[in-house]
Design a binder for these strands. Structure first.
Lengths: 403, 403
DNA sequence: TCACTTAATTTAACCCTTAAAAAATTACAT
DNA sequence: ATGTAATTTTTTAAGGGTTAAATTAAGTGA
């Protein structure tokens, strides 16, 4: 009936409880056995048994006695704080954009212990080349540690298990398969993931979005969408993709989109679209230029001065975005939206138009009052989300893989 | 971390295995212990123990020896076929439409043992009245059995746990709360569910849709959408609703929709929209008439004769529907679609337009070749889906509720 | 030093599963 | 008719996991 194998062996129970306990350490950091017992709703005895195994396996370690903790509870046998062992395993979390590769090495508690970033133009490289470039970058860090998993955020469609990229605007046809090559060369698990999905994953750990239902909208070279519904990342039936950007906003005589159709939301709200309109270029042709954060910042400056092409470009972007959100909210219900990326810098200038357009197009006339916020550092969020995925994978291995 | 309580008690293991075994009986009907042991991947001993308990609890029963089964395997101790006890519990599955209430009493194996249908105009009744009407109808059947749960399919938005209707086009404001009244009057659990979601649930058991990803599109008094993604019913963050019907197909100067906006998909593809256009009425006003299946059939007849308003009405419906599907597929990936309801009778006349419009508006120019099929008897599917929900609820109770 | 407090470990009891042995029930050959 | 083989179901014994309770460990404070 259900696809996941049911738990019924006592062996499986033990594995579940290992994961349960590891998850508590991941969630709360340093904790004593007693605290874990309460948090995980397991008896003290079980926690003792499992932690002994986890200590033996090197998954957790005993903390150095902490002054503050000791002073806290005066009477009785003092608690022994345990924590995840940072050196247990390592994740390489990365982000591939159209002109750069960025990699971070993250230890088992989630601390970044090394990072490197390089300008690379991906679109002309094949899969083998991309894989080699990544490994060369990693070697140049001269680290003593061996990573156990790569997680790489990329713009484009990925399949649900993270094994391959189905389509990407920043990779050549032959470059799509770099994950295969990378895992062959490195002998290590490789997961590729949609960049917007990684941003959403990263934000999902923020206090602000703890109720677990929100959208991350990435406004840069295209419009990305990462959804969290009820604490779970949403993905399509077969692939990562939820394509907010290619919803048809204007008819076929609208502005030209990268996808070669006309009138998509992206053709109004992406960086190139905003830049195109602000510079009064032909909306029926695609600009050659790679729009940067500075370009957008300049447009925002101009728009703040008063009406003019720059202001109108941002208004138009807001209208398109509001339309896209209205349709999305119709299918998923309404929820908070976090805007990320270059274009998101213009959120305050855009917000009125977005809301107006959203309310105009949302079903049932019901006035919507969803929260819009803005997050900075899209790239950091992509890497952060990737490292979270990697750590989750390691936790699973730690819980189920061992004896 | 996860919201559902994890399994870790040995007690829970037994409950899980009870459900496992009950589910096999539900799925396959009569089965011997040996067969169940293989199907459920549990040892013969466990199956013996659990079945003994289930027999004691009256959840399953021993079948009358079956000739065919006996002749089957000649040697050895003959298998004893077991089956769900039809009289264990009963479900009332129903459907509420704008002008009728239809109820079926279903036994624990899923057989319909009684049914009643009445013309009732719901829109003027309050919650108490609706509840009373339902109970009166049920009483008039003079059955000896007491139902354990009501599951009722209704057009409109329901919340995810089935406890209330948030919005409905067929109920008055005060009528929305009839589920509360019904459960208070009957002292029995009441679940309200979206009609299209019930249709999808019903279809999900069909062989044809066993891979578990498809959409059911209900074309009648409005456009309903029921989604199955990966074998699981999809629902929004807070409510049932996935509103395919209120996606903006034409701009604000498009045809008038029941939701009072202009240009929605529903304003072109619902029964009243098709009828309005076929009769060359003003697209900016709503027709008073309640369109029936016969009305639609007549339009289809006319359309088959050749070009004219009827033919054009159906074309327009197809275009709007294709547009809606394109947007939905962008957010969810593409998958098979089953059309149900009055309007679905016109599927063969509409299909070309749907596909053309779909391919025109779907992202990435990729040519889509999803399957479109048509299912009849929307109402039967609603009731069937509801009874499935009810039986699933009973199975849970049978597995977890008992000692 | 000794009582008191709290944490962690150990123990004993219990539940569940499985594999293997035993019992039950039938077919078939002699 | 009777014994043997075949097959299903039940019973039994072993093993692993959990929990509550008892015990041990390790401090505080008078």
């Amino acid at each position: 009936m259900s696809k996941t194998k049911q738990v019924y062996l006592s062996d499986d129970v033990r594995k579940q409880n290992r994961l349960r306990i590891i998850s508590q350490f991941r969630l709360h950091g340093k904790k004593s056995r007693t605290e874990i017992s309460k948090l995980a709703d397991l008896s003290a005895g079980t926690v003792t048994n499992v932690s002994t195994m986890l200590l033996d396996d090197g998954i957790i370690q005993v903390c150095q006695p902490d002054i503050t903790a000791q002073a806290n509870n005066s009477h009785g046998r003092p608690r022994v704080q345990l924590e995840l062992n940072p050196d247990y395993r390592f994740v390489v979390a990365g982000s591939l954009t159209f002109n750069s590769i960025s990699l971070s090495v993250v230890d088992y508690v989630g601390d970044k212990i090394a990072a490197i970033q390089e300008k690379v133009s991906l679109e002309n490289l094949n899969g083998q080349d991309v894989a080699k470039t990544i490994l060369t970058m990693l070697n140049s860090l001269e680290m003593k540690v061996t990573p156990s998993i790569f997680v790489l955020g990329v713009q484009g469609l990925t399949n649900n298990n993270g094994s391959e990229i189905l389509w990407s605007p920043i990779l050549s046809e032959s470059g799509l398969k770099f994950a295969d090559h990378l895992s062959q060369l490195s002998k290590v698990e490789v997961i590729v993931a949609n960049d917007s999905a990684m941003i959403a994953k990263s934000l999902s750990k923020d206090q602000e979005y703890q109720d677990g239902t929100f959208a991350a909208v990435l406004m840069s070279y295209g419009i990305g969408l990462g959804l969290y519904i009820d604490g779970e990342p949403f993905h399509g039936a077969k692939s990562s993709a939820s394509e907010l950007g290619h919803i048809s906003f204007e008819g076929n005589d609208g502005a030209l989109c990268r996808c070669k159709k006309h009138g998509c939301v992206e053709a109004y709200a992406s960086d190139y679209a905003i830049w195109r309109r602000a510079n009064q270029l032909d909306p029926k042709s695609l600009p050659d230029k790679q729009v940067t954060g500075e370009d957008i910042a300049k447009i925002i400056q101009e728009a703040k001065q008063g009406d003019g092409p720059a202001r109108e470009a941002i208004r138009e972007a807001g209208r398109a975005m509001g339309f896209g959100l209205a349709i999305m909210f119709g299918l998923f219900d309404a929820f908070p939206v976090v805007f990320v990326g270059r274009g998101a810098q213009a959120l305050d200038l855009m917000e009125d138009e977005i809301r107006k357009s959203l309310n105009e197009h949302f079903r049932f006339h019901k006035q919507l009052d969803v929260s819009f916020t803005q997050a900075n550092d899209a790239l950091i969020h992509v890497e952060n989300g990737s490292s979270i995925i990697g750590l989750e994978w390691l936790d699973q291995q730690a819980a189920f893989g061992a004896s």
